[in-house]
Design a protein around this nucleic acid. Structure first.
Ligand SMILES: [Zn+2]
Length: 179
DNA sequence: CGATTTTGACCAGCGC
DNA sequence: GCGCTGGTCAAAATCG
């Protein structure tokens, strides 16, 4: 195998989750650059997040835990779980994550890491856990939606931004009057 | 100096 | 009611 096992494999990890958006099994990202896959995944994630039709709010018994209460079939905000093939934890999805806790889950001899978006106003949380059967895999669960674009704005974005014929960056004041 | 990371403690929900 | 698990926050330490 290659030393770089940066294959991004999207699996419907909604085994127990009900309102989890499962992606298509794009396991063809083998010899592709992990970067390309990265963008793809990121795009997919954002897409799913955007199409968050959850707004039933049938019961107003929402506790302070907006994470994922199994109250009703649909109640939480957003949850995305992936299986990523990586030797180490997942890098950054283009966002900055700050680790805010580590916990040992009984389900696996491996610790679970809790990450939070360090961007202002962004309270998105990420949960990273190593697979129990495949230590080469890591389960990355994203919770929430980003309020800002990725600080890593890579590749083409915003085609127009300068061609604005109306900007007088010159001295708009004092057209011609010196001391 | 600031941001970030690390570990522990604390709290809340659920089960029994 | 107690115990357990899971999750979050906080203080201190470290890195850049
Ligand atoms: Zn964010």
């Amino acid at each position: 195998m290659d030393g770089s096992l940066h294959q991004f494999q999207l699996f419907d990890y909604d085994m127990m989750i009900q309102d989890d958006y499962s992606f298509d099994q794009d396991a063809h990202l083998s010899s592709q650059n992990w970067f390309s896959s990265h963008q793809n995944i990121s795009n997919n994630i954002r897409n799913i997040e955007s199409k968050n039709p959850i707004s039933t709010s049938a019961s107003s018994d929402i506790k302070r835990k907006s994470g994922a209460m199994k109250k009703n079939p649909v109640d939480m905000g957003l949850r995305v779980a992936f299986r990523t093939k990586s030797k180490l934890d997942i890098m950054d999805d283009g966002y900055k994550w700050r680790k805010y806790g580590k916990k040992m889950v009984k389900n696996s001899p491996n610790p679970r890491n809790y990450f939070k978006c360090s961007s202002g106003g962004c309270k998105v949380k990420k949960r990273v856990e190593r697979d129990r059967d495949d230590s080469a895999y890591v389960i990355t669960t994203y919770d929430g939606v980003h309020n800002h674009e990725s600080p890593n704005c890579m590749v083409y974005q915003m085609p127009s931004i300068v061609p604005i014929d109306g900007w007088t960056l010159e001295d708009s004041f004092t057209p011609s009057s010196s001391s």
